[in-house]
């Protein structure tokens, strides 16, 4: 087996990969793992988005990778710098689960679906098509995108492994 170069993306973090490297983020719960891929230049990008919008930020220096509305433009910029043509880019995403269900939920507890909505909105704004997604549910996911194929591998405890 060929050892592939693995790039880890942490929580509220983003990164890009080229030359067949693999991007990986673990333990997505209500967070969304958003990936962008240009199939021609084979540049892949991944963001582990934690919150829907930077409008609610109360921190002085914003971590752009944390919020859907800031992470997506940043990721697009980084991929362009690496030689990607974003008009060809396609998006796949996973996560946005509702880990625990409660009645009478406050808005902050519905964070998963809100993260997904916000990512979709930002992608539409940047005219990037979402070709596949595996979102929602009540389980955690670990995802990997291979920059040589653009295949997104999704692992979960209950449902095993699948590819989209």
């Amino acid at each position: 087996m060929i050892e592939q170069n693995l790039v880890k993306v942490g929580m509220a973090d983003l990164n890009i990969a080229t030359d067949g490297a693999v991007l990986r983020t673990t333990g997505l719960g209500s967070c969304v793992g958003l990936t962008l891929y240009d199939p021609v230049s084979k540049v892949a990008g991944m963001a582990h988005v934690m919150l829907p919008s930077s409008e609610i930020a109360r921190e002085s220096a914003i971590n752009v990778a944390k919020y859907a509305d800031t992470a997506i433009p940043e990721l697009i910029g980084r991929m362009k710098d690496a030689g990607a043509n974003m008009r060809r880019a396609i998006a796949k995403m996973a996560g946005g689960a509702q880990m625990f269900a409660f009645s009478g939920q406050s808005d902050s507890m519905r964070i998963g679906p809100r993260n997904v909505e916000s990512c979709l909105h930002m992608l539409a704004k940047n005219m990037i098509t979402v070709i596949a997604q595996d979102v929602g549910g009540n389980y955690g996911r670990t995802i990997e995108i291979d920059s040589s194929t653009g295949i997104l591998l999704i692992k979960s405890v209950q449902l095993g492994t699948k590819e989209i």
């Binding site: 333990g27 209500s30 880990m99 955690g140 209950q158």
Partner: peptide, 8 residues
């Protein structure tokens, strides 16, 4: 489930 998903 995965600890990361739960604790986040």
């Amino acid at each position: 489930d995965m600890a990361g998903a739960i604790l986040s």
